[in-house]
Design a protein around this nucleic acid. Structure first.
Lengths: 195, 195, 195, 195
DNA sequence: GATGAATGAGGGTTCATTCAT
DNA sequence: CATGAATGAACCCTCATTCAT
C-alpha cells in the first residue's frame, strides 16, 4: 500500500472513530456531519471525499464494529476450553470492547431505521452471524451438559440486551473500572446458563 | 367528567400511544410530529392543541410509562410473598407491559438527550424510583438468604437491559406470545439471583 | 337601540380596547387573536363573531383612533382663539390622548403594511384629514402673522413624529405625569412655529 | 484581508442592507428571512451561513446603525464650534444617514420586543450612549447660554421622534431631496432650543 | 484533496381562520 | 352566541449534500 493510500486509510479510520464516538454518545440523528468533521478539525465537505454520504459512513462504522465483534467471538469459539469458559470470555470481551470504544449504538439494534437495500442486508447478515456464533456456544454448552436446556434465542437476546445496555449505565467515575465491570457482569450473566 | 373532557382525555391518550409506538419503533428523532399526527388522521398542527411541543408530548409519554411501571412494581413489592416470587412477578409484569404497549423507548435510558430543566429532573427521579424499587426487592432477597450476595446495582442494570431490549427482538409473528416470552425470560433471568 | 344591540356594542368596544392596548404595547404581529381574547376572558373563536378577521378588527381600531383625533382637532380648530393657542391645545390633547389610551400604534404610520383595498383608502383618507386639520391651523398662524413662514408639510411631519414617539419614551414611573408631559412638550414644540 | 474574506464581508453587508431596508419598510415581523434572501437572489438557508438566526442578523444591523450614529455624533461633539452649530449638524447628519440608508427602524425604539439577554443589554447601552451624546450637546448649549433652559430629556426625545419619523414620510418623489429635507428640518427643530 | 459557500428538503412551531356542537 | 377543536399556510431553522475554486 502506497504512502498515499495509507494516509487515506488512516483518515478514514479517524473519521469512523469520531463518528462512532459521537453517535454512541448523542445518537444517530443528533450527530451531524459537522460534529463529526469539526472534532477532527476538518470541514464537513471533506467527509464526502471519504464517504459517499452519511448512511455510507455509518454503514462502514457498523460493519467494522460488528465485524470485529464477530471475529473476536469466533476466535473465542475456536478456543480449546469448555463452553462455560468460552461464553464467559465472550461476554467479557464484548463488554470490554463496548465500554472501551463507547461505540455500541442504536444502529445495530434497529438497522431497518438506518439502512436499506444491500446495506441493510449486509448489516442484518452480520448481526445474524454474531448471534449465530453466540447461539453455537450456548448450544454447545447445552449439548455437553454444562448448560441447562432452554430456548436459545430467548437466552441469547436477554444476554445481548443485558450487555449492550451497559453503555448506558457504566460510568468511568463509578467504583468499578471497565475490566471489573465486565467480569462482574459476566459472572452474574453466566448464572443464566449453568445448571 | 363531562363528555367533552372525556373525549379530550381519550384523544390525548391516542396521541400518546401513537407517539410511543412510533418512537419505540423508529426512535425519537426519526419520528416526526407529522408521523404521529397522520397515524391518527390528524394534522400536525392539531397536536399542538394538546401538547405544547414535542418535548412536552414525549415527556408525558415517558412520565406515564415510568409512572405506571413504578406503580406496578411497588404493588408487587408490597405483596406478601417471598423475594423470589416478587422479583419474578416484577419481571413478568415489566415485560408484558413493555411488549403490549410497544413503548419502551430510548428516552427512558438517555433522558439527558431529550429533556432539560424540570422535566429532566422529573424523569431522572422517576427512573431512580423505579430502580430503587427493583433494588429493594433484590436486597430483600439477599437479606433473607434467598438470593446470592452481589453488587445490586450491576445486577439491576443487567436485568433492566435484558428486559428492555426485548422490545427490539420480540416479534408477534414468532413462536411465543407475549405472556410466554415474559415468563420464559423471567425464569432465565431469575437464575442470576438465586443461590 | 335594543338591549341586545347595546350589549354587542359594548363587547365590540371592549375588544377594540383590548386590541389597541396590546398592539400598542407589543406591536401588530406580536399580538395574537388569542392574546386579545384571553385578556377579556373570551376565546379566540368568539372574536370572529364581532369582527370578520384580524385586519377588520384592526381597521376599526385605527378608524376610531384616527376618527376621535380628527374630531378633537376639528373642535379645537373651531375655537375662537388665536392660532398659537389652537395649535398648543391640539398638541396637548393629542399627546394626552395618546399617552392615556396607550394606543398610538405603528398601524397609523405604515397603513400600507396592514390594509389593502377600501380599508387602505379609508385609513389614508383619515390620516390625510388629520394632517390637513393640523396644516390648516399652521397655515392660519402663518397667514395671521403669528407663526413664522415655512414649509408646512415638513413642520407638520416633524411635529407628528415628535408627538407620536412619546409613547415609546413616556414612563408612568417617571417624574412627570401625562398632563405635565403633554404641556411641557407642547411648549417646546410650539417654539418651532412662533416667530 | 484575503479575497475570500473580503467577499464574505461584502455579502454580510449586502444581507444587512437588505434586511435593514425591508425591516424599515415593512417592520420586523412582517419581514421574513425569505424576503431578505430573495431580494439578494439567495435562498433562505444561505442566510444562516452568515448569521446564526434572525435575531442575530437584526442585532448586527441595529448595532451597526447605532454604532455609526454614535460615532458621527461624537465626532460632531468634538468639533470646535458653538453648541448651535453642533446640534444643527448632528440633526442634519442623523437625518441624512437615516434617509439615505432607509434604515431607521422600530427595533431601535423597542429593543425589549426583539432582543434578550446580552444582545438586549448591548442595544440598550448603545441607545443610551447616543442619547447621552445628544444630551451633552444640549446641556452644553444651555450652560453656555446659547440654548434656553428646559427639561433635557423631554427635548431630546421630542427631537429624536421628529427626526426618526422622517423615514415614514420622506418621499424620494417629493419636491425636496434628502439634503434639503435634512437642512430644513434641522432649522425648524433648532428653534426648540434657541432662546 | 480541502474548503467555503450555497442549496433545498424537511421538521418544529405559530397562528389566523373555520366550523360543528 | 360561545367554545373547543381542527386546519393549513407560513415561518424559522437545521442539515445532508453538492460544487466551484
Amino acid at each position: 500500500m502506497s504512502l498515499r493510500e495509507r494516509k487515506k486509510e488512516k483518515k478514514i479510520n479517524e473519521i469512523m472513530n469520531s463518528a462512532m464516538g459521537l453517535i454512541s454518545k448523542k445518537g444517530y440523528h443528533a450527530t451531524t456531519m459537522d460534529d463529526i468533521a469539526s472534532e477532527l478539525l476538518m470541514t464537513k465537505g471533506s467527509l464526502y471525499y471519504y464517504f459517499k454520504d452519511k448512511e455510507d459512513l455509518v454503514f462502514y462504522c457498523t460493519k467494522q464494529l460488528l465485524g470485529e465483534s464477530i471475529q473476536q467471538a469466533e476466535e473465542i469459539e475456536r478456543l480449546d476450553v469448555n463452553s462455560h469458559e468460552k461464553l464467559h470470555k465472550a461476554i467479557v470481551v464484548h463488554m470490554e470492547y463496548l465500554l472501551t470504544e463507547r461505540s455500541g449504538f442504536e444502529i445495530g439494534s434497529k438497522p431497518r431505521s438506518f439502512f436499506s437495500g444491500e446495506k441493510l442486508d449486509h448489516v442484518v447478515k452480520l448481526r445474524h452471524d454474531y448471534a449465530s456464533c453466540m447461539d453455537r456456544m450456548i448450544e454447545e454448552g447445552m449439548a455437553s451438559g454444562e448448560f441447562e436446556q432452554g430456548d436459545v434465542k430467548v437466552k441469547r437476546n436477554l444476554l445481548l440486551g443485558a450487555m449492550n445496555y451497559s453503555i448506558s449505565w457504566y460510568s468511568l467515575s463509578g467504583p468499578l473500572d471497565i475490566t471489573e465491570t465486565a467480569h462482574k457482569s459476566a459472572e452474574h450473566l453466566m448464572k443464566m446458563f449453568v445448571k
